[in-house]
Design a protein around this nucleic acid. Structure first.
Lengths: 247, 247
DNA sequence: GTCTATTTGTGCGTATGTATA
DNA sequence: GTATACATACGCACAAATAGA
């Protein structure tokens, strides 16, 4: 009995063993478990350590290779495909691209879709307008160094920000798009953070594996007069991002 | 074709259909889907809506009943076991019990374990001491209205806070325990928020189902002179808590 | 260059869990 | 409840690639 003592896997939980193992390996990487040479123990060792069959370990590794977390080389071993975790600052001056300025060479915002619609109760409350008032909804995707980082849904008052979709499409930046509409500066008034499983289009857009987690930030930005300009729900890929609150 | 259009379930993902359905029902509840009378549609309707067999819906419901999210009554229907989601404020003056003051009648902190140990690099950096210096580690559980809300691991400099374990055990409050050691006031200097699957003891302590998500807040508290007093990692049950950042 | 140990890749038979009809 | 199909997990064996002696 040489294998390290590890918590045994849970069975019959509705989550396949290989997926549980994949999640634990991914977490271990995040916790710096294989820091030295970035090399995973051999499959046989992992199998013994987790108390499962080598095939099951291989399924887990295959999923992580698919995700781009690991790289397997026949005869040599399995290695961590090192990627940094982006730290996204949340403060009064929160802006996506500026926040990641020092962390990624290439930051990009894409407009996936946009629509003009009527504000429901929640949106109306946030923007300080009457329910049913026209709003513009933007569906956007943000990438850093070619990796999708977040998917956001934003609402703007339609009257004041009629051309916001075109402006965002052109610049890829909310800050610049707002500037086109006379908002030179804005502030983050509130941010509510929660977490849940990724679902629907987010899975594909963020290139996540089923079961992956998203950090959800529901935020309100206001202009210098305190008037709401943007209400948004941003889903961050939890395994690629952490949120830093400066206080 | 009368059933509402819903995104079809994903197959062969390593997550059993019944668990995916359970997760989606749980999320739907959080999003206020069954707001009216707190009653779920009949199993046959849910089955048609998700495009799956009724037996599979029953497995999902059974799991949620087990979790305490739903309550099934034979012949009547399935109902939401209503529970509120706590909003936990994060600011310079973040304190656990005060933050939930208006949201829960009964707030309680338990000391699960404590130990004296040597600071590793990460702890030492945070507390501004030399690696290997003695620190006291507290394992704590926080409950609100009888429901476990968070599990925290905290580190304190051993020399300055020698009796912190006893003080916390007696009062159930970090604020009061620090006061016993001459820290009348303290501030939240930084908080880093991430999310991952719950694991190990957290699953049991927080009474979570396997696959459940925890919001992880790594925080540093400093005294009025700016000296670090507490470094902590708190795991919040993501389906019961959201974090609110004011600023 | 050859042999050997190590490590990943592949095949197959069996048992059990999950989902459908 | 029963029958059927597929996904998951295990055990064993062997092939292929690599690295070091």
């Amino acid at each position: 009995m040489q294998a390290k003592a590890v918590r045994p896997m849970e069975r019959k939980t509705g989550i396949a063993l290989w997926r549980q193992v994949a999640d634990r390996i991914r977490q271990g990487i995040g916790a710096g478990d294989y820091e030295g040479d970035g090399r995973l123990p051999p499959e046989t060792v992992l199998a013994e350590r987790f108390g499962i069959n080598r095939h099951t370990v291989r399924s887990a590794i295959a999923a992580l290779v698919q995700e781009g977390v690991l790289r397997a080389e026949q005869g040599r071993g399995t290695f961590i495909q090192r990627r940094r975790r982006f730290t996204y600052p949340i403060s009064a001056r929160t802006r996506f691209s500026e926040g990641l300025r020092d962390q990624a060479r290439d930051r990009r915002g894409h407009l996936l879709a946009h629509a003009r619609e009527e504000a429901d109760q929640r949106i109306a409350d946030a923007l300080g307008i009457a329910p049913g008032s026209p709003v513009i909804r933007l569906e956007t995707l943000s990438e850093a160094d070619g990796r999708p980082v977040s998917r956001a849904t934003s609402w703007f008052e339609a009257e004041r920000f009629s051309g916001i979709a075109d402006a965002f499409a052109a610049s890829g930046s909310v800050t610049l798009a707002l500037r086109d509409h006379g908002v030179d500066d804005y502030f983050r008034k509130s941010t509510v953070v929660s977490a849940r499983h990724a679902e629907g289009a987010d899975l594909a857009d963020l290139k996540l594996a089923p079961g992956a987690i998203v950090l959800v930030a529901v935020a309100l930005n206001v202009d210098t007069q305190g008037r709401p300009v943007q209400f948004s729900e941003t889903r961050f890929a939890a395994d690629r991002v952490e949120l830093s609150v400066i206080g």
